[in-house]
Amino acid sequence: MDFVRVPSSSGGDPLDAFVRAQGDRLLRLAYGLTGNASDAEDLWQDTFADVIRSWNKVAAAGAPGAYVRTMMTRRHISNHRRRWRSERPMPNDELDRAHHPKGEAEAARDLWPLLEGLSPRTRAVLVLRYAEDLDDAAIAEILGIGASTVRSVASRGLAALRERDMT
């Protein structure tokens, strides 16, 4: 998927065309960041409410998809800092097991549940690195931190996962 270009809309609303082209990918990023579908939909919609307000700026960006990805990631982290959220989905172990995409055998090797409880920034670093395949410099730019900080956050995140995996 091209994260750089605003897709041509053949006369339609360019925002609609942008969402058609990149909305699903950004929703998957939101899911990776939040860990559940409801929060992911909330994050996606809040981000796109901002995008609608500042569409001209987004469209003018060299890489609008990357621009929105940065908006979404930073919004997610700052939401947690402000602790504005007043709801949290209850744990749903039984359904999660039943709905594991690859069945029970794979569930034992699944690290997804262990991501729960990592700080939003640590989780964001791991998701951007291992799901979005971004290098540390790109992650640093998204988060507004240095590349060395990204490396140390990722290292601590992996160590935390390893520890949880063994217990």
């Binding site: 925002l15 609609d16 969402v19 909305g23 950004l26 929703l27 939909e41 996606w44 796109f48």
Partner: peptide, 8 residues
């Protein structure tokens, strides 16, 4: 996941 066009 949900349709992004609906979410829009």
């Amino acid at each position: 996941m949900a349709s992004s066009e609906v979410l829009l």
